[in-house]
Write a protein that binds this DNA or RNA. Sequence first.
DNA 1: CCCTGATTCGC
DNA 2: GCGAATCAGG
Length: 174
Amino acid sequence: MNWTDERVEKLTKLWADGLSASQIAAQLGGVSRNAVIGKVHRLNLPGRAKSGGQSSVRTKRTTAAPRAPAYAGRNAAQTTRTVSRSSGGAALKQDVEAVAVEDLDTRPMEDVVVPISRRLTLVELSERTCKWPIGDPLLEDFHFCGNDSGDASPYCSYHAKLAFQPSSERRRAR
DNA sequence: CCCTGATTCGC
DNA sequence: GCGAATCAGG
């Protein structure tokens, strides 16, 4: 891939916005983070203030920002899916709680607070990043949580609590 | 190990 | 000019 004016422009902008080289590479596509860094140097763009690593500025959430629902609205639509298998006797009949967060008339876990998200885009997700979607996919600021997902889980510990609620105990608790 | 940017150097 | 390899660091 070559550095078209458009791509250079985007690179410059994103770099100025403080995104990391790898994140920029992911958004540009077709280039490695090394390519991005190399280009940045060649363009004489100001490098990062201190040669600090990932602990630098990152997601700067000013103040008030109740990162609450984000999912509430549209999710309430496709919440509980009841699958009934009426086969012969009265054997199988179970309802499966589909990936739901907070359903219609709910009260359970509303207390699960998710810290901050890394605002990753689809292409930036890796095996260890939380794949919990945030925002409206149709909007520009749509992103994924991106926090560490432990190792074998698709979500970070916080979103995992929201996603995998033990159905049995939930019913009981209600 | 994950990630970060910085530099080098063959292409 | 480009970017993989490498280095240095959190």
